[in-house]
Design a protein around this nucleic acid. Structure first.
Length: 581
RNA sequence: GGUCCCGUAGCUCAGCUGGAUAGAGUACUCGCCUCCGAAGCGAGGGGUCACAGGUUCAAAUCCUGUCGGGACCA
């Protein structure tokens, strides 16, 4: 049940009726008409801007339209009052029975409440993490992983057909470096002294891989040249790293549908096919790029190479796909990968990248636009840096000094739930401060705690109610007489619950899961307020001794609140707490 | 030099793809436990929404430019 959608369509119907009666001209678009909660609660439960939006195209005075619309709307039993206000707003007050309907709808189908249909029939592909398979995931990857995962879950909740995918960059020079590094560890496992020069990965996590390699191949690679072992060690090491990464993701609660290998693009003709597709559209040519503006780099010289005319699709300069020696640039496999996504029939693509990939956005969008003839949309979400703090002081990461914070460090220290929630309390494109101590704090300053505390309190009341002999099953609560819920704080809470489906739609449309985290904080706040109001007004306490019916009505309200918190947290991948410890 | 992101209360940040008197947290002042978890709640002060133009019934929100901060490319 989506109250806002219902009233929105009621407004729409009424507007059409006005057209039929000749009060409004034909051919008007109602797209700009909104029904939303007013900022000021004194203005009622909902407000619509219909009259103001339609005034100009219909050449009527806004207040006249508002007046006629108000007359039509007020005939509907769902609306208790309709008032024209200000320049032509219509302020709507809902019949009090509607709030009870919302609660009953929540209790009738708890796990389904808030699910939307905005994404029905739309196939969306979300690519995230996609870290190089050269080591464990670190803090930066964690943010991308959490964001992408929550985004995918949210889209799923909003009705989209979602595919979650990890692109394994196992085709570039970095996996050769990995192989050489593992080879050093292999020599070490054979008792040799080794030195890790620049351009190798000295991390301890490769010790076990070198050991495992020794167990697999014995001494057969000792004293041999690179041409003899590189390919096999590369394969072996990449697999080991992906195993490590999968475990990291699992610890964070991130699941992928597909792991897609870059290497699998080579030798299958896919890259050639993608470039051929662009060529057939006249977007591939031989040419020489202009030197970069500003300071000329020392080693720049004009070279003829194969270029993609990305400027035809919004890019700033054309991009090379093949170097003068015939080898592919790093961009070519990326094109091929997205070509493959388009071929797989997705309607929408979303790439979640770190902010350091900001430079690729325009060319990737150009590629997808060209490859799909603008039929497939590509949204690229960049996640900004995570700044770590300990005891309020910035905490510098350094691979060299070994103060390198991994995903595991985070999860081990603060838990997957807190890590995930905190990472979602900022917009993806804003930098994030992650304070180890604050995340663990049990105060309202810590949003994870605050939301969990609300849920735990509700569970606590439910436990107490059961001990007192009050039936609290959803089926029983649904049948309760909810007419007694009349206090302002109770109705505010119910109104907040009614907003949830609308919030999901808004958040899903803009690919912004952080909105859910903020909503949950607000919801928790309304709940805590109501709880405390019970201190001064005993009649607002949830358990009313000796009054079974009233208790059940109030418990229906907070049980519905717990359901929404639980659904919201579920999208973010966070377990709701039954009790605080 | 170019591209992208950001600039909102002392501090950290929301702000519904354009709506009414711009909101939370924190900090400061004051009040609330004989009571379902006070790990909480309520009240108060605090703003030129970086700046200047533009678009319109309406701009923190959209467009242009300037300044400041960050990320990246060369």
């Amino acid at each position: 049940m989506n109250l806002f959608a219902e009233i929105r369509s009621l407004v729409n119907d009424s507007l059409q009726q006005m057209q039929a009666q000749g009060d409004l001209p034909d051919g008007l678009s109602f797209d700009a008409v909104t029904v939303e909660p007013p900022r000021d609660a004194a203005h009622g439960d909902m407000a619509t801007n219909a009259a103001m939006v339609l005034a100009k195209p219909s050449r009527c005075k806004p207040r006249d339209i508002a007046q006629r619309l108000a007359t039509l709307l007020s005939a509907d039993p769902r609306l208790a009052s309709v008032e024209v206000a200000g320049p032509g707003f219509l302020n709507l007050r809902l019949a009090s029975t509607l709030w009870a309907d919302v609660l009953r709808a929540i209790l009738a189908d708890p796990s389904g409440y808030g699910r939307a249909t905005v994404g029905a029939g739309i196939k969306v592909h979300v690519e995230y993490v996609s870290a190089n398979p050269t080591g464990p995931l670190h803090v930066g990857h964690t943010r991308g992983a959490v964001f992408g995962d929550a985004l995918a879950s949210m889209l799923d909740f909003a009705g989209y057909d979602v595919t979650r995918e990890y692109y394994i960059n196992d085709g570039g020079a970095q996996v050769d470096v990995l192989a050489r590094s593992v080879y050093l560890r292999y020599l070490e496992a054979h008792g040799q002294e080794v030195a890790f020069e620049d351009g190798t990965y000295p991390g301890d996590y490769l010790i076990a891989v070198g050991q495992a390699l020794k167990e697999k191949v014995g001494d057969s690679y000792l004293g041999k040249g690179e041409q003899f072992w590189l390919e096999d060690v590369r394969e072996f090491s990449t697999l080991a790293m992906m195993e490590l990464i999968r475990e990291d993701l699992l610890a964070l609660g991130v699941k992928m549908d597909v792991f897609y290998s870059e290497k699998s693009l080579y030798g299958t003709g896919l890259i050639e096919a993608a470039i051929e597709d662009l060529k057939s559209k006249g977007l591939i040519y031989q040419g020489v790029l202009e030197p970069p503006k500003g300071k000329k780099p020392e080693d720049w010289e004009p070279r003829e190479q194969t270029l993609f005319r990305s400027t035809d699709h919004g890019d700033d300069v054309d991009r090379p796909v093949q170097k003068s020696d015939g080898s592919w640039t790093y961009f070519a496999p990326d094109i091929a990968y997205h070509y493959d996504k388009v071929q797989r029939g997705f309607d929408q693509l979303i790439d979640v990248f770190g902010a350091d990939h900001g430079g690729y956005v325009k060319r990737m969008k150009a590629a997808v636009s060209a490859l799909s003839n603008d039929k497939t949309s590509l949204d690229i979400k960049l996640t900004q840096l995570v700044k770590l703090f300990k005891n309020g002081a910035p905490f510098k990461m350094s691979k060299r000094a070994g103060t390198f914070v991994t995903l595991r460090d985070l999860v081990d220290q603060v838990g997957a739930d807190a890590t995930r929630f905190v990472m979602l309390t900022r917009k993806n494109d804003a930098p994030l401060d992650f304070d180890f101590d604050k995340v663990m704090e049990q105060t309202k300053e810590n949003p994870v705690f605050y939301v969990q505390y609300a849920h735990a309190r509700i569970c606590s009341v439910m436990r107490k109610a059961q001990l007192a002999g009050v039936a609290v099953e959803d089926a029983v609560l649904q049948a309760a007489d909810l007419a007694g819920l009349t206090d302002a704080a109770e109705l505010t809470l119910a109104a907040k619950l009614a907003e949830f489906p609308r919030l999901i739609e808004i958040a899903a449309r803009s690919n912004e899961p952080h909105r859910i985290a903020f909503y949950l904080y607000d919801l928790a706040s309304e709940f805590h307020a109501l709880w405390n109001k019970g201190n001064e007004h005993p009649e607002l306490r949830f358990l009313q001794e000796g009054n079974l019916a009233t208790s059940q009505a109030k418990i229906a309200l907070i049980r519905a609140t717990a359901v929404v918190i639980s659904n919201g947290l579920g999208i973010l991948g966070v377990q709701p707490a039954q009790e605080m410890r």
